[in-house]
């Protein structure tokens, strides 16, 4: 069963997707559903014997192209609606043991084009208001299949955290006539202490208000609302700075850093959104090589993050990692 239930207390939708309880969970070596199908082997999601990049619709989607009617009847207090949307899986490599940090630069440049194509393709559908590209990496995040892959959720509405960000961007733009993120970048350039890596067209910082110790936001330096506005050179440059950042993460403690990576860009709902500015946010859950930053009572119940570190110190650590 799959449906969307309205939470009138928080003013947001919750997706129920009971079929996901049965999804593949940490399959043994040799039975990865995201590897290519080997000759004489069991059939995986990908029938071909090899691939560069593959995108396919998730077998256990939270949102569905044809969701059907909700199993329960809604009313004024508890509205429900079909869980309309599309969930895709993006395979970065046919190699089971690699990670995004291992992807060579030319291939990373190609992956940026795959992401751009998915943003434009899914976003062109009238029922899709927001294309959310992300990656959960590592068992610490709850990844159920270790094969290197990302995901895309194409929402039929603006998800709440994104909507909150868009509201604040629009308010800043209304008050000042400027982009909030462009103002933040100007401040970071003047300060310098929170910059992790910078290239011709992109800059990665640990924001002044970071919630996680090693949270990094990777920005287009020029005002760009979405990947659709990137030139060829900017697409290649994004691949470069992304590669450097991921290698710095892995180089920090000498092992593959778990993280959540999420892309924030312009909604595809047809509105203008002049304050929206493309960026990628990384939330690594570790605060030391052995200790997790838990989302405990204060974070989960009050919505206030307590960061046990200073962004300026953590940015200096990442900046010092040679790649």
């Amino acid at each position: 069963m799959s449906e969307m239930r309205w939470n009138p207390v928080m003013g947001e939708w919750v997706v129920t997707a009971t079929h996901r309880q049965d999804r593949t969970f940490l399959p043994p070596a040799g039975y990865c559903p995201l590897c290519p199908t080997a000759e004489g082997g069991f059939p995986t999601e990908i029938p071909e014997p090899d691939y560069d990049f593959v995108v396919f619709e998730n077998k256990f989607p939270s949102l569905k192209r044809e969701p059907g009617e909700p199993a329960v009847e809604g009313d004024d207090l508890f509205p429900v609606k079909p869980s309309l949307g599309i969930c895709e899986v993006v395979l970065y490599s046919s190699s089971h043991t690699s990670t995004l940090a291992d992807v060579p630069l030319p291939k990373m440049q190609q992956l940026v084009r795959v992401w751009k194509d998915r943003y434009e393709d899914l976003g062109s559908r009238p029922e899709i208001d927001y294309v959310f590209i992300f990656e959960n990496k590592g068992e610490a995040i709850g990844v159920t299949i270790s094969h290197p892959h990302g995901q895309i959720y194409a929402f039929s509405y603006l998800p709440p955290r994104v909507e909150r960000e868009l509201t604040n961007e629009a308010e800043h733009h209304r008050k000042t006539g400027r982009c909030l993120h462009c103002d933040i970048l100007k401040r970071e350039v003047a300060d310098q202490s929170r910059i992790v890596v910078e290239s011709d067209h992109f800059m990665a910082i640990i924001p002044f208000y970071a919630r996680y110790p090693y949270e990094v936001h990777l920005y287009a330096k020029e005002h760009r609302g979405s990947m659709s506005e990137f030139s060829e050179e900017e697409q290649n440059d994004l691949a470069y700075v992304l590669s450097v950042l991921l290698k710095k993460y892995d180089g920090l403690w000498g092992f593959s850093m778990p993280y959540m990576m999420v892309m924030h860009q312009k909604p595809t709902d047809g509105a203008d959104w002049p304050g929206c500015h493309f960026h990628i946010e990384f939330y690594p859950p570790l605060r030391t090589p052995e200790k997790l930053k838990y989302l405990a009572g204060c974070e989960s119940g009050a919505g206030t993050f307590v960061n046990d570190t200073l962004p300026e110190d953590k940015a200096a650590e990442l900046r010092a990692v040679k790649v």
Partner: peptide, 28 residues
């Protein structure tokens, strides 16, 4: 790490198929 390849062009070739259960599968 050097950013020597910033002017490389990439021509994307996309092959769209349907899986047996109707799900979309795209090779890039």
């Amino acid at each position: 790490m050097n950013n020597n390849d910033k002017n490389v062009r990439h021509n994307m070739i996309k092959r769209v198929e349907a899986k047996d259960d109707g799900r979309v599968l795209i090779y890039y």
